[in-house]
Amino acid sequence: MTLPFSVFEDHLRLSVRLTPSGGRDAFDGVEVAADGTLWLKARVSQPPEGGKANKALIALLSKTFRLPKSAITLMSGETARKKILRIEADPEDFEITFKRLMND
């Protein structure tokens, strides 16, 4: 399985395609863009106004991967659907949880 995140020496970078006002907070699998880029598809119930959807995404990731919210920061895409997040986490633990999430 190819994954929508990259591992660096001291962090991970996760690519997410976010749907705000999506009715519920959940992940909807992995999307392959036309250029071959992989994105984790996520939806949150919060609207995009005032950064509410971004905060809801960070809360969802924090809960799912059992990380403090402070370990997840938005690197790019603050007002776009496609976002890159920096995650301070053990890469092996993150990958195991991610694969388990995608198989549910």
Rank of each mutant, 00 (worst) to 15 (best):
T2W: 00
P4G: 02
L67F: 11
A26H: 07
K41M: 13
N103D: 12
E31I: 12
P47M: 04
R66G: 03
L60R: 05
G23D: 10
L40W: 12
K99V: 05
A34E: 14
G23E: 10
G50V: 09
D28C: 13
S45Q: 15
N103H: 10
K82A: 09
R100K: 13
I72G: 04
E88A: 14
D93M: 11
L101M: 15
F27R: 06
F8G: 01
A34K: 13
L60A: 11
S15K: 12
L67H: 10
L67P: 12
P47G: 09
P68S: 11
N54W: 07
I87L: 12
D10C: 01
I58L: 13
T64I: 10
T73L: 12
G23H: 11
F94M: 06
T73C: 06
M75Q: 15
D25C: 06
F98I: 02
G50F: 05
D90L: 09
P68G: 09
R13E: 15
G23I: 07
K82G: 02
V30S: 05
L40N: 06
W39Q: 03
S15I: 01
T73M: 10
L74M: 13
H11K: 09
G77Q: 10
M102A: 01
W39S: 03
P48Q: 15
L38D: 06
H11R: 14
Q46N: 08
K83C: 06
S62P: 08
D93Q: 14
L101S: 05
L101H: 05
K83R: 14
L12S: 02
R17H: 14
V32I: 13
R24L: 13
E92N: 10
S70Y: 02
R43H: 11
M1E: 03
D93V: 11
S70V: 09
I84M: 12
I58A: 04
P20C: 05
A56E: 08
D93F: 04
R81L: 12
R81V: 00
L12T: 00
V30N: 04
K52T: 04
R24T: 11
T64M: 08
S6H: 09
F5C: 03
E92M: 09
P4L: 01
P48T: 08
P91H: 07
S15N: 15
L74V: 10
L18Y: 04
M102F: 01
G77M: 09
W39F: 15
D104G: 08
E88C: 07
D104H: 11
T79S: 12
L3T: 12
L18P: 02
S76W: 02
L3M: 08
L40F: 10
G50N: 11
A26K: 06
E88V: 12
I87A: 04
M102W: 02
I72K: 05
T37K: 15
D10K: 14
L57C: 07
V44S: 06
I84F: 02
G29W: 03
L61T: 09
P4W: 01
T37L: 10
L101T: 05
E78Y: 15
D35K: 07
L67R: 10
S21E: 14
E9D: 13
I58C: 04
P20T: 06
E95A: 12
